[in-house]
Simulated assay, not measured.
Amino acid sequence: MQSAYDPEKRKLLSVLSHSSVFFASLFFFIGVPLGILLISEDPIVKENAKEVLNFHFNIWIYEAIIAILVFSFIGIPLAWLLTPFFFLFHWVTPILAILKSLNTPDEPYRYPFIFRFL
Rank of each mutant, 00 (worst) to 15 (best):
P112N: 02
P105N: 12
I98E: 00
L69V: 01
S17L: 02
L26W: 03
K11F: 05
F22V: 07
Y109W: 11
L34I: 15
K46T: 12
M1K: 06
H56W: 11
F89M: 02
I44D: 02
F27I: 10
L37Q: 06
P77C: 00
F89W: 15
W80M: 12
H56E: 07
I39T: 12
L82Y: 03
L102N: 05
D106H: 00
N103R: 13
L99G: 00
P108N: 08
P105V: 07
T104M: 06
L34P: 06
E63F: 00
I114G: 05
N54V: 05
E41L: 06
F85C: 01
I65V: 15
L88W: 06
S40K: 04
F86P: 02
V15R: 11
P84D: 04
E107K: 14
G75I: 00
S101C: 05
V52T: 09
H56I: 11
I36T: 14
S20E: 08
W80P: 03
F115H: 05
I59W: 09
D42S: 01
I76D: 02
S14K: 04
P94M: 13
Y5F: 13
L69N: 01
F85M: 03
L13W: 10
I44C: 03
S40L: 10
T83M: 13
A67E: 07
P43D: 06
K46V: 15
I59C: 14
F27H: 05
L96D: 09
E107L: 12
H90K: 12
E8K: 14
N58Y: 00
F23Q: 11
Q2P: 03
Y111E: 03
S25F: 13
L81F: 15
S40C: 11
T83K: 10
G75R: 00
K50Y: 15
R10Q: 15
V32K: 05
A79M: 08
Q2H: 10
L12W: 12
H56A: 06
I59V: 15
I74M: 06
